[in-house]
């Protein structure tokens, strides 16, 4: 079922391994999201798949065909760049149709396909404008149209929404996801935003320092992080980490608890409320425990304690994530 397979892909920049022996299979038709902090190698890996960089080691298969040294254009992949990379001297129509023109497609056919894609992306009124005369959101859609029109084997998205404002970003996430599902085309999506990863992905791959930390479905990662890094990276607000005797009682070097898995209890860790964030549907209460350890718990609106209040909290025992001293999840 996998459409793109990576075997031992490695890319070095000088002495630094930006991508370190990556093995990965990317399922056909799904949305796979590469996520991780900046410099983790996710964008480099995407560029290796696109053929914009050549790996130092390893093999890349697309549809069971070895594409390791193939020129980018021959891989049948389309990419949407973070900067959109529109051709500034061409109209929207020419931008979207450029690849088809280079492929030698007949003019009427090109026009028909461009019109169809433009209609799908609500770009029809802007077809004869240049990129400079478009808003950020419209440029974004042109970049997507340029990828869609080629009917590629797979889409590669390199942080495509990061230049949009928050409201538009939220809308485009949904729109992009819907479009990808309608077309049924395989997609790889790179982002540093874990919330974006959670909302869009069929499958998330978490990267750090050029290596895969964990790969799986979004809720799998959320509920069963394989290690301390993934536990801390996925979810917002982030998990509460506690070490020392509190962890020892759970038989672990360190434990992590999500804010929603902490409750106010008669018996528990006592702390003082420092800040209360009111988000409307829910609130987050920031505490400092007696030994100075910070803690965040979720509270229903209307039930928040006051600033400075003293209270005791306890975790839902079954929801405590336990980690060994090596940072890996225990049992």
């Amino acid at each position: 079922m996998s459409q793109i397979e990576l075997h031992g892909i490695t890319k070095r920049f000088g002495d630094h391994r930006a991508v370190d022996r990556i093995d990965l299979a990317i399922a056909r038709g799904g949305m796979t999201v590469f996520v991780g902090p900046s410099g983790c190698g996710k964008t480099t890996l995407l560029r290796l798949i696109a053929g914009l960089e050549d790996p130092d080691e390893g093999r890349l298969l697309i549809d069971d065909e070895d594409m390791t040294g193939t020129a980018p254009a021959q891989r049948g992949l389309a990419m949407v760049f973070q900067s959109y990379a529109l051709y500034p001297h061409m109209t929207v129509r020419a931008n979207i149709g450029f690849a088809l023109k280079l492929a030698g497609m007949a003019r009427p056919e090109i026009d028909a396909r461009v019109e169809r894609v433009a209609a799908m992306l609500h770009l029809t009124p802007y077809l004869d404008r240049r990129p400079a005369a478009l808003s950020g959101g419209q440029r974004q859609r042109v970049a997507i149209g340029r990828a869609v029109v080629r009917e590629p084997r797979a889409f590669l998205f390199d942080e495509p929404l990061s230049n949009l404002d928050a409201a538009l970003r939220g809308r485009m996430r949904v729109e992009l996801r819907r479009l990808q599902q309608e077309l049924g085309t395989t997609a790889i999506y790179v982002t540093h935003d874990q919330a974006e990863a959670m909302t869009m992905a069929d499958r998330i791959v978490v990267f750090r320092d050029g290596r895969i930390e964990q790969a799986g479905r979004p809720l799998e990662l959320y509920h069963r992080p394989a290690n301390r890094f993934v536990a801390g990276f996925i979810g917002s607000p982030a998990m509460n980490f506690l070490a020392g005797p509190r962890a020892a009682t759970f038989g672990a070097a360190e434990i992590a608890i999500r804010p929603e898995d902490l409750t106010v209890a008669a018996e528990g860790w006592s702390g003082t409320v420092t800040v209360v964030e009111h988000l409307g549907a829910e609130s987050y209460v920031h505490l400092v425990l007696e030994d100075g350890a910070p803690l965040v718990l979720r509270s229903r609106p209307g039930e928040e304690p006051a600033n400075g209040a003293k209270l005791r909290v306890a975790p839902v025992a079954a929801k405590v994530h336990r980690f060994g001293s090596d940072g890996l999840a225990l049992g």
Binding site: F81, S83, A85, L86, A99, R146, R150
Partner: peptide
């Protein structure tokens, strides 16, 4: 000249001359 624009052209199938 932004490098990504040239890369986009390469992915769109442009030869070196194109």
């Amino acid at each position: 000249v932004p490098g990504e624009v040239l890369e986009a052209a390469r992915l769109d199938g442009a030869s070196v001359v194109q």
